[in-house]
Design a binder for these strands. Structure first.
Lengths: 124, 124
DNA sequence: TTTTTAATGCGACATTGTTGCAATAATATA
DNA sequence: TATATTATTGCAACAATGTCGCATTAAAAA
Protein backbone atom coordinates (compact mmCIF):
# COMPACT_ATOMS: atom_id res chain seq x y z
CA UNK A 1 0.00 0.00 0.00
CA UNK A 2 1.68 3.15 -1.17
CA UNK A 3 1.28 6.48 0.55
CA UNK A 4 -0.19 9.46 -1.23
CA UNK A 5 0.62 13.09 -0.71
CA UNK A 6 -2.40 15.21 -0.02
CA UNK A 7 -2.95 18.75 1.12
CA UNK A 8 -3.64 17.50 4.62
CA UNK A 9 -0.56 15.33 4.93
CA UNK A 10 1.69 18.06 3.61
CA UNK A 11 0.29 20.74 5.83
CA UNK A 12 0.42 18.61 8.93
CA UNK A 13 3.97 17.50 8.27
CA UNK A 14 5.12 21.05 7.62
CA UNK A 15 3.49 22.20 10.81
CA UNK A 16 5.16 19.49 12.84
CA UNK A 17 8.50 20.34 11.28
CA UNK A 18 8.09 24.04 11.90
CA UNK A 19 6.96 23.81 15.50
CA UNK A 20 9.64 22.79 17.91
CA UNK A 21 7.34 20.92 20.21
CA UNK A 22 5.03 17.96 20.45
CA UNK A 23 1.40 18.74 19.75
CA UNK A 24 -1.89 17.03 20.34
CA UNK A 25 -4.63 16.86 17.76
CA UNK A 26 -6.32 19.97 19.04
CA UNK A 27 -3.21 22.13 18.84
CA UNK A 28 -2.59 20.83 15.35
CA UNK A 29 -6.13 21.41 14.17
CA UNK A 30 -6.17 24.99 15.38
CA UNK A 31 -2.85 25.79 13.73
CA UNK A 32 -3.68 24.42 10.32
CA UNK A 33 -4.55 26.87 7.57
CA UNK A 34 -7.22 24.71 6.02
CA UNK A 35 -9.84 22.84 7.95
CA UNK A 36 -9.05 19.18 8.33
CA UNK A 37 -11.34 16.68 9.93
CA UNK A 38 -10.41 15.36 13.34
CA UNK A 39 -10.45 11.75 12.24
CA UNK A 40 -8.23 12.59 9.33
CA UNK A 41 -5.69 14.28 11.55
CA UNK A 42 -5.47 11.20 13.71
CA UNK A 43 -5.16 8.96 10.70
CA UNK A 44 -2.44 11.09 9.17
CA UNK A 45 -0.51 11.21 12.42
CA UNK A 46 -0.76 7.50 13.00
CA UNK A 47 0.43 6.87 9.48
CA UNK A 48 3.41 9.12 10.11
CA UNK A 49 4.14 7.10 13.23
CA UNK A 50 3.99 3.85 11.31
CA UNK A 51 6.42 5.27 8.80
CA UNK A 52 8.78 6.41 11.53
CA UNK A 53 8.56 10.06 10.56
CA UNK A 54 6.86 11.15 13.73
CA UNK A 55 6.76 9.83 17.24
CA UNK A 56 3.96 9.72 19.70
CA UNK A 57 4.07 10.52 23.39
CA UNK A 58 1.21 10.13 25.80
CA UNK A 59 1.12 13.01 28.22
CA UNK A 60 0.29 12.74 31.87
CA UNK A 61 -2.93 14.42 30.86
CA UNK A 62 -3.76 11.23 28.97
CA UNK A 63 -3.58 12.92 25.58
CA UNK A 64 -1.53 11.83 22.63
CA UNK A 65 1.18 14.20 21.49
CA UNK A 66 3.04 13.99 18.21
CA UNK A 67 6.43 15.35 17.32
CA UNK A 68 8.58 15.28 14.23
CA UNK A 69 11.52 12.94 14.56
CA UNK A 70 14.79 14.83 14.69
CA UNK A 71 17.57 12.44 15.58
CA UNK A 72 16.05 9.26 14.27
CA UNK A 73 17.64 7.56 11.35
CA UNK A 74 15.50 5.11 9.46
CA UNK A 75 17.29 2.23 11.13
CA UNK A 76 17.38 3.39 14.70
CA UNK A 77 14.06 4.89 15.52
CA UNK A 78 14.63 5.54 19.20
CA UNK A 79 12.83 7.92 21.49
CA UNK A 80 14.37 7.12 24.81
CA UNK A 81 14.30 10.69 25.90
CA UNK A 82 12.08 12.58 28.25
CA UNK A 83 9.52 15.15 27.34
CA UNK A 84 8.55 18.08 29.44
CA UNK A 85 4.98 19.31 29.50
CA UNK A 86 4.26 22.73 30.94
CA UNK A 87 1.03 22.75 32.86
CA UNK A 88 0.76 26.52 32.38
CA UNK A 89 1.24 27.07 28.67
CA UNK A 90 0.75 23.51 27.49
CA UNK A 91 3.98 23.30 25.57
CA UNK A 92 5.51 19.85 25.27
CA UNK A 93 9.19 19.84 24.42
CA UNK A 94 11.94 17.28 24.16
CA UNK A 95 14.57 17.08 26.84
CA UNK A 96 17.80 16.26 25.13
CA UNK A 97 19.22 13.78 27.56
CA UNK A 98 18.76 10.16 26.61
CA UNK A 99 17.61 7.96 29.43
CA UNK A 100 19.26 4.58 29.61
CA UNK A 101 17.00 2.06 31.20
CA UNK A 102 17.95 -1.48 32.02
CA UNK A 103 14.98 -3.78 32.28
CA UNK A 104 14.90 -6.93 34.39
CA UNK A 105 15.51 -10.30 32.77
CA UNK A 106 12.84 -11.45 30.38
CA UNK A 107 11.33 -8.04 29.85
CA UNK A 108 11.08 -6.68 26.33
CA UNK A 109 10.82 -2.97 25.67
CA UNK A 110 8.33 -1.88 23.06
CA UNK A 111 7.71 1.70 23.95
CA UNK A 112 9.41 4.27 26.11
CA UNK A 113 7.23 7.03 27.47
CA UNK A 114 8.99 9.40 29.80
CA UNK A 115 7.18 12.56 30.68
CA UNK A 116 7.77 15.23 33.26
CA UNK A 117 5.26 17.95 33.86
CA UNK A 118 5.63 21.19 35.68
CA UNK A 119 6.28 24.80 34.78
CA UNK A 120 8.70 25.69 32.04
CA UNK A 121 11.25 28.46 31.93
CA UNK A 122 8.89 30.93 30.29
CA UNK A 123 6.14 30.41 32.84
CA UNK A 124 8.17 30.43 36.04
CA UNK B 1 -12.46 18.75 56.05
CA UNK B 2 -11.83 15.46 57.76
CA UNK B 3 -11.79 12.14 55.95
CA UNK B 4 -14.26 9.43 56.79
CA UNK B 5 -13.74 5.72 56.62
CA UNK B 6 -16.36 3.96 54.58
CA UNK B 7 -16.76 0.46 53.24
CA UNK B 8 -15.63 1.67 49.84
CA UNK B 9 -12.51 3.44 51.02
CA UNK B 10 -11.45 0.52 53.17
CA UNK B 11 -11.99 -2.06 50.48
CA UNK B 12 -10.21 -0.08 47.83
CA UNK B 13 -7.25 0.63 50.07
CA UNK B 14 -6.96 -3.02 51.08
CA UNK B 15 -7.06 -4.07 47.48
CA UNK B 16 -4.34 -1.65 46.51
CA UNK B 17 -2.21 -2.85 49.41
CA UNK B 18 -2.73 -6.48 48.56
CA UNK B 19 -2.04 -6.24 44.85
CA UNK B 20 1.53 -5.63 43.95
CA UNK B 21 0.76 -3.58 40.91
CA UNK B 22 -0.80 -0.38 39.71
CA UNK B 23 -4.41 -0.68 38.65
CA UNK B 24 -6.83 1.38 36.67
CA UNK B 25 -10.39 1.97 37.73
CA UNK B 26 -11.69 -0.97 35.73
CA UNK B 27 -9.30 -3.49 37.26
CA UNK B 28 -10.17 -2.15 40.69
CA UNK B 29 -13.90 -2.26 40.10
CA UNK B 30 -13.82 -5.85 38.93
CA UNK B 31 -11.74 -6.98 41.90
CA UNK B 32 -13.88 -5.40 44.58
CA UNK B 33 -16.19 -7.64 46.56
CA UNK B 34 -19.00 -5.13 46.77
CA UNK B 35 -20.19 -3.03 43.89
CA UNK B 36 -18.90 0.49 44.00
CA UNK B 37 -19.88 3.20 41.59
CA UNK B 38 -17.33 4.27 39.02
CA UNK B 39 -17.44 7.91 40.07
CA UNK B 40 -16.91 6.90 43.67
CA UNK B 41 -13.85 4.84 42.81
CA UNK B 42 -12.31 7.80 41.07
CA UNK B 43 -13.14 10.10 43.93
CA UNK B 44 -11.71 7.71 46.50
CA UNK B 45 -8.54 7.24 44.48
CA UNK B 46 -8.04 10.94 43.94
CA UNK B 47 -8.54 11.54 47.64
CA UNK B 48 -5.87 8.94 48.38
CA UNK B 49 -3.56 10.75 46.00
CA UNK B 50 -4.18 14.06 47.72
CA UNK B 51 -3.35 12.44 51.03
CA UNK B 52 -0.17 10.93 49.66
CA UNK B 53 -1.26 7.36 50.32
CA UNK B 54 -1.44 6.38 46.70
CA UNK B 55 0.24 7.61 43.57
CA UNK B 56 -1.11 7.96 40.09
CA UNK B 57 0.59 7.02 36.85
CA UNK B 58 -0.79 7.66 33.41
CA UNK B 59 -0.09 4.75 31.13
CA UNK B 60 0.89 5.00 27.51
CA UNK B 61 -2.63 3.76 26.90
CA UNK B 62 -3.83 7.07 28.29
CA UNK B 63 -5.43 5.50 31.33
CA UNK B 64 -4.86 6.41 34.93
CA UNK B 65 -3.27 3.78 37.12
CA UNK B 66 -3.10 3.87 40.88
CA UNK B 67 -0.68 2.14 43.21
CA UNK B 68 -0.19 2.04 46.92
CA UNK B 69 2.85 4.02 48.05
CA UNK B 70 5.56 1.76 49.38
CA UNK B 71 8.70 3.76 49.90
CA UNK B 72 7.14 7.13 50.45
CA UNK B 73 7.42 8.70 53.82
CA UNK B 74 4.96 11.44 54.63
CA UNK B 75 7.63 14.03 54.02
CA UNK B 76 9.18 12.79 50.85
CA UNK B 77 6.45 11.70 48.54
CA UNK B 78 8.57 10.86 45.52
CA UNK B 79 7.76 8.62 42.62
CA UNK B 80 10.71 9.13 40.40
CA UNK B 81 10.73 5.56 39.29
CA UNK B 82 9.61 3.88 36.14
CA UNK B 83 6.64 1.67 35.70
CA UNK B 84 6.39 -1.19 33.31
CA UNK B 85 3.14 -1.97 31.59
CA UNK B 86 2.77 -5.33 29.89
CA UNK B 87 0.78 -5.03 26.71
CA UNK B 88 -0.12 -8.71 26.90
CA UNK B 89 -1.46 -9.21 30.40
CA UNK B 90 -2.01 -5.58 31.33
CA UNK B 91 -0.02 -5.71 34.53
CA UNK B 92 1.61 -2.46 35.60
CA UNK B 93 4.46 -2.87 38.02
CA UNK B 94 7.08 -0.65 39.59
CA UNK B 95 10.63 -0.85 38.41
CA UNK B 96 12.79 -0.37 41.43
CA UNK B 97 15.44 1.85 39.97
CA UNK B 98 15.03 5.53 40.70
CA UNK B 99 15.58 7.76 37.73
CA UNK B 100 17.50 10.91 38.42
CA UNK B 101 16.54 13.65 36.07
CA UNK B 102 18.16 17.02 35.86
CA UNK B 103 15.95 19.64 34.36
CA UNK B 104 17.20 22.74 32.53
CA UNK B 105 17.40 26.05 34.37
CA UNK B 106 14.09 27.57 35.28
CA UNK B 107 12.10 24.39 34.98
CA UNK B 108 10.13 23.17 37.95
CA UNK B 109 9.15 19.55 38.31
CA UNK B 110 5.64 18.83 39.46
CA UNK B 111 5.08 15.32 38.29
CA UNK B 112 7.26 12.51 37.06
CA UNK B 113 5.63 9.99 34.77
CA UNK B 114 7.98 7.36 33.44
CA UNK B 115 6.43 4.40 31.73
CA UNK B 116 7.80 1.62 29.64
CA UNK B 117 5.54 -0.80 27.89
CA UNK B 118 6.31 -4.11 26.35
CA UNK B 119 6.06 -7.74 27.35
CA UNK B 120 6.83 -8.83 30.86
CA UNK B 121 8.69 -11.88 32.05
CA UNK B 122 5.56 -13.99 32.35
CA UNK B 123 4.37 -13.22 28.84
CA UNK B 124 7.62 -13.59 26.92
C1' DT C 1 -8.21 10.52 -20.36
C1' DT C 2 -9.55 6.72 -17.77
C1' DT C 3 -8.83 3.52 -14.03
C1' DT C 4 -7.45 2.24 -9.56
C1' DT C 5 -7.49 2.71 -4.80
C1' DA C 6 -5.54 5.53 -0.91
C1' DA C 7 -7.25 9.23 1.68
C1' DT C 8 -10.99 12.09 3.33
C1' DG C 9 -15.32 13.71 5.69
C1' DC C 10 -19.11 12.53 8.16
C1' DG C 11 -21.51 10.38 11.59
C1' DA C 12 -21.72 7.17 15.13
C1' DC C 13 -19.64 4.97 18.75
C1' DA C 14 -16.88 3.28 22.95
C1' DT C 15 -14.29 4.72 26.66
C1' DT C 16 -12.45 7.54 30.22
C1' DG C 17 -12.90 10.75 33.61
C1' DT C 18 -15.54 14.67 35.87
C1' DT C 19 -19.40 17.19 38.00
C1' DG C 20 -24.06 18.62 40.07
C1' DC C 21 -27.40 17.15 43.06
C1' DA C 22 -30.22 14.61 46.11
C1' DA C 23 -29.83 10.74 49.31
C1' DT C 24 -27.05 8.23 52.58
C1' DA C 25 -24.16 7.23 56.33
C1' DA C 26 -19.92 8.21 59.20
C1' DT C 27 -18.57 11.06 62.85
C1' DA C 28 -19.20 14.65 66.35
C1' DT C 29 -22.22 16.65 69.71
C1' DA C 30 -25.67 16.92 73.15
C1' DT D 1 -28.06 6.76 73.27
C1' DA D 2 -30.27 10.01 70.27
C1' DT D 3 -29.55 13.87 67.28
C1' DA D 4 -27.13 17.03 64.31
C1' DT D 5 -23.57 17.82 61.02
C1' DT D 6 -21.47 17.15 56.76
C1' DA D 7 -18.36 13.97 54.13
C1' DT D 8 -19.35 10.48 50.98
C1' DT D 9 -22.08 8.01 47.71
C1' DG D 10 -24.98 6.80 43.58
C1' DC D 11 -27.04 8.37 39.70
C1' DA D 12 -27.38 10.77 35.63
C1' DA D 13 -25.51 13.78 32.52
C1' DC D 14 -21.73 15.57 30.33
C1' DA D 15 -17.20 16.71 27.86
C1' DA D 16 -13.34 15.02 25.64
C1' DT D 17 -10.45 11.77 23.29
C1' DG D 18 -9.76 8.52 19.96
C1' DT D 19 -11.54 4.91 16.60
C1' DC D 20 -14.24 2.88 12.85
C1' DG D 21 -17.51 1.96 8.84
C1' DC D 22 -18.93 3.74 4.70
C1' DA D 23 -19.74 6.56 0.80
C1' DT D 24 -17.23 10.13 -1.67
C1' DT D 25 -13.12 12.42 -3.34
C1' DA D 26 -8.87 12.89 -5.41
C1' DA D 27 -3.88 11.25 -5.93
C1' DA D 28 -1.24 8.46 -8.83
C1' DA D 29 -0.83 4.90 -12.31
C1' DA D 30 -2.13 3.02 -16.73
Amino acid sequence: MKRRQTHSTQEILELLKAENQAMNHEMIQSKLDSQVNRATIYRVLNRFCEDGIVHKIVGDDGKQYFAFCLNCTQKTHNHNHFHFRCTQCGKVECLEKEASISLPEGYVLENFNGLISGTCNDCT
